[in-house]
Simulated scan of single mutants.
Amino acid sequence: MKETLELSQLIGLIVPLILLQLVLMIIALVLCAKTEETRGPKMMWVLIIIFGQLIGPIAFFLFGRRNS
């Protein structure tokens, strides 16, 4: 019983993940730009957010922002 995914099913699985990743990345980049102090250099967090794919923005939300 070997089943294969058709292209439409594959797109239906991947597109929501890509949209979620883009939304999280944009929100994290905006928050990083507006935040005065971060834990570590801002440029480092920008690179983590961009190249960390889905985990980068989540890491910034959890560890990058300082609570004043």
Rank of each mutant, 00 (worst) to 15 (best):
E37S: 13
F63L: 13
L13R: 15
I27A: 06
I48M: 03
E6V: 14
T4G: 11
E36P: 00
G64Y: 00
L24N: 02
R65L: 13
I18V: 01
C32H: 13
M43Q: 12
T35S: 02
R65N: 12
I18F: 11
I26Q: 01
Q9A: 10
K34S: 06
L22I: 02
G40R: 15
P41L: 14
E36M: 02
L20P: 06
F60I: 14
I18L: 09
S68R: 12
F51H: 06
L17W: 10
K2L: 08
L20M: 01
C32T: 15
L54I: 05
I27W: 00
A33Y: 03
I14K: 00
L54A: 12
R65A: 15
I26V: 11
E36S: 05
L62R: 07
E3Q: 11
L62N: 07
W45R: 04
I49Y: 06
E37W: 15
K2W: 10
L54H: 04
K34N: 04
L62F: 15
A59P: 00
I27T: 06
M44G: 08
K2S: 11
L29M: 04
F61R: 15
P16C: 05
L29D: 14
L20K: 03
W45I: 01
K42F: 11
I27H: 08
P57Q: 07
R66L: 10
L20D: 01
Q53W: 15
M44V: 09
L31E: 03
I55C: 07
G40I: 03
A28K: 00
I14H: 01
L22Q: 02
G12F: 04
M1W: 05
I27V: 06
L19S: 12
L24S: 08
L19Y: 08
E36Q: 05
I48F: 13
G56D: 07
M43N: 09
L19M: 08
K34V: 04
M1R: 11
I27N: 02
G12S: 07
Q21R: 13
M1C: 13
A28H: 00
G56M: 11
I14R: 03
E3G: 13
F63D: 09
C32P: 04
A33V: 02
F63W: 10
L29S: 06
F51R: 03
I58F: 13
Q9V: 09
L19K: 01
G64F: 01
A59M: 07
L47T: 09
I11A: 05
I14C: 04
G40N: 08
T35C: 03
R65H: 06
A33S: 09
A28M: 04
I14A: 07
L24Y: 02
I27S: 01
I14V: 08
L17Q: 14
S8A: 15
L31A: 11
G40D: 05
I48E: 03
